[in-house]
Design a binder for these strands. Structure first.
Lengths: 137, 137
DNA sequence: TCTTTAAATCATAATGATTACGAATTACAT
DNA sequence: ATGTAATTCGTAATCATTATGATTTAAAGA
């Protein structure tokens, strides 16, 4: 996912290109596929747009997540967001708890265990690995 | 894990057997290995002890988790707790999002992917499957 | 049983993340 | 340039969780 693709996607749906929204996308691009908590996003945005409130942040983050521009997870009780990975198929992530950066893990455990859940309706699953990336070690 | 084992464990560490604490354990036992959110635990306890406050709930839940009597996870932004499973080795869970009940899944994906994380320090991982159990379908 | 004391609870307030809302502003199609 | 719906701003409300000081209680020992 990148900025131009995201903005086009929004334009198609009738959403406007605001400078705040553009800046949010830029910050995700600068973060290079890492997860960012909502609070950090607010602080970053406010360097350029001091008046921005949480309302703008969350409204945009959720909008972008609904449009599959972002994906989200919950780390230590805080929602984190990142650009949606659309270069691979379905996959999971190692997440560095120091910097938020991720590494794709292609293996999905559901392939191995689905047959053991006969009679159960599976709606979703979460597989995440937490630790320190080489750069943070 | 069961009530007597838990109470003995606490007694060894010098913790007291209070009626509120005992009731918390009973509620977990009644729940039959399902996850319970803190809020539900408060409501349940208050049927017997109307004066109980969140302080008592959280203090006890965290104490019990520290002592490995409970295990916890975060579902939809709320902390949930359950009796710690000590009948198997390391394993994961299917969690019914309707009733909180769980089914053990013996497979751990870390066995398959650890070698692909060379150079990364793995501290923790989470693998959970969400859906509806046969009883709730 | 009585006393002592640390542990635990109670009542309430503080914190922090998230959500909500009315008024004002802005993007953009016509 | 204008109209209109989308968006933002400023601020308040909500919700889960954590913290605190005063009071009560469990349990060990005399």
């Amino acid at each position: 996912m990148n900025i131009e693709k995201a903005i086009n996607k929004l334009k198609e749906k009738g959403y406007k290109r605001t400078k705040q929204r553009k800046r949010i996308l830029e910050i995700f691009a600068e973060q290079d596929q890492g997860y960012i908590p909502a609070k950090t996003m607010l602080k970053e945005i406010q360097k350029d747009f001091p008046g921005v409130s949480y309302d703008t942040i969350y409204r945009n983050l959720y909008l972008l997540a609904d449009e599959h521009v972002l994906e989200s997870t919950e780390l230590e009780g805080e929602k984190h967001f990142r650009f949606h990975c659309d270069t691979h198929g379905h996959h999971h992530h190692f997440i560095c708890t120091a910097c938020g950066k991720t590494k794709a893990v292609e293996f999905c455990p559901m392939d191995k265990i689905r047959q053991s859940l006969d009679g159960y309706a599976v709606d979703d699953h979460k597989f995440e690995i937490y630790g320190k990336c080489p750069g943070c070690l």
